[in-house]
């Protein structure tokens, strides 16, 4: 058995508890898997937001799943640098977000500098009708990673996975 491949397969089945359509690989938070041997494994993960309560749940999920594979010694290492960015969310992850009703983050370089006051990220497409005629209701949404937007055309309020 190729342990490392097996582990990646398992990691692909672990989902973010708050956005259950996304796996932790889709999110880009697993940075590395190091197999010292079949029983000693290190998984390196990076937090999305420092206070995100999902991170503890995810670490526990990883541990539980790998224990079931018979791995005895699992180390989960949190790596802070380079800091996680939404650019690491995979294409298929972005597609899944959209289908789930959350507007996926745009690429960092495609967005305007966000430090100007009262400037909101423009052209965030509505995940329902694809209109880019939308406006921001709040910079902070139901979780740390999301902002709240509304579509001016179909009027649907929606979460935007904010560019980070």
């Amino acid at each position: 058995m190729d342990t490392e491949q097996e582990i990646w397969k398992i990691l692909a089945t672990i989902n973010d508890p708050e956005i259950p359509v996304l796996s932790i690989l889709d999110l880009g938070i697993v940075r590395n898997v190091i197999c010292k041997d079949d029983e000693n494994i290190e998984v390196v993960i990076t937090p999305t937001y420092v206070g995100c309560p999902a991170m503890d749940v995810i670490a526990t999920e990883i541990r539980m799943n790998l224990l079931q594979l018979g791995i005895k010694n699992i180390q989960i290492i949190t790596q802070l640098s380079p800091a996680w960015t939404t650019d690491w969310i995979t294409q298929s992850g972005k597609q899944k977000l959209k289908e789930y009703g959350i507007a996926p983050p745009r690429l960092q370089k495609a967005t305007h500098p966000q430090n100007n006051l009262f400037v909101e990220e423009e052209f965030v497409p509505c995940p329902l009708c694809n209109s880019t005629n939308t406006h921001r209701i709040s910079q902070f949404g139901s979780t740390a990673c999301k902002a709240l937007y509304q579509c001016n055309d179909c009027k649907e309020p929606f979460d935007y996975f904010k560019c980070h």
Binding site: G51, C52, F140
Partner: peptide
């Protein structure tokens, strides 16, 4: 919306503290 905003900021700060 602002209740959510201030508590999100709170969470960020407690994350930093940890």
């Amino acid at each position: 919306e602002q209740d959510i905003a201030i508590t999100n900021i709170s969470l960020d700060l407690i994350g930093q503290a940890r």
